[in-house]
Computed example of a mutant assay.
Amino acid sequence: MNTKSATAIINDWPEDSREAAQIVLDTYGEPDEAADSLLIWHKAGPWKRVEASRTFHEHAFPAPHIDSVLSVLDYRVPAEKFTALAQFDGSVIAERTTGELSARCHDEQANFLALNLVHDIVTGNKTVEEARRYYAKEFLDARRGRPTPYMEKLRFAQSSEPTPDADERMLSDKDLERAAAEGQ
């Protein structure tokens, strides 16, 4: 663990990523892990992990902003839904092998919004286009001071079933042994 406090670490960060990290610090306190470029909280709120990074990425959907806070869940995304999720939001990351789903945005509320909509897409409650339109509407409603139910919390129960998907073996031990023998 870095011996500097998280506040001291983020003082050297660019303003955009510093501001986003401060929001997470204000919500969850000191991180479980800290490096000069990354703060990590484990089991913070509903999340498996939250990461605030010095590095930020410019993102234009639904309006220009920066992405530097990653919120991670255990969640199995069916392989046939990966394309839809990529079409929905480029800051949503589904990892099949680890069984993790994450969203990277400016703050936790935007990550709630993105992941709630991902769940709607995965379960067939919204199409990609419907989810994108709803995201834009709720983003504007937040600015207007109107209710934003998808930004308040996760609106689905997390599965108690294992979420990793190790895939299926294609090569036998015999295939591997034969290949190794051919390579000598």
Rank of each mutant, 00 (worst) to 15 (best):
G99R: 07
K137F: 09
I66F: 01
A63Q: 14
S160C: 08
W13I: 01
G124W: 00
A166M: 15
Y28D: 02
A181T: 12
Y150M: 13
P164M: 03
R18F: 00
D107G: 14
K174W: 15
V50I: 14
F82G: 03
L38Y: 03
T55K: 13
D16A: 15
T7Y: 10
D167A: 14
F82C: 03
T148L: 05
E100F: 09
F88P: 00
F82N: 05
A79T: 07
I9C: 11
D89K: 04
M170I: 15
K153A: 15
L140V: 13
A94H: 03
K137W: 08
M151Q: 14
R169H: 06
R104W: 04
S159L: 05
M170S: 14
G45E: 04
S91G: 13
F156N: 12
A180R: 11
F56Y: 11
L39V: 06
F56Q: 09
A142F: 03
A110T: 11
K153W: 08
D26T: 04
K4N: 10
E15L: 15
R96N: 06
Y135K: 11
R18S: 04
V69A: 00
R169M: 07
Q184H: 11
H42T: 07
L85A: 02
L85K: 02
E108T: 13
A181E: 15
G99P: 05
A157K: 14
D173H: 08
W41L: 00
E108S: 06
L25S: 11
G45L: 04
L113H: 09
S5I: 05
E161Y: 09
A21W: 01
K174H: 15
E161L: 11
V50K: 02
T123P: 04
V118C: 03
T3K: 12
K43Y: 07
D32H: 10
Q158R: 15
D74Y: 10
N2V: 07
E177G: 09
P149N: 01
T123K: 07
E15Q: 14
P149A: 01
V118E: 02
D67V: 02
D89A: 05
R133M: 12
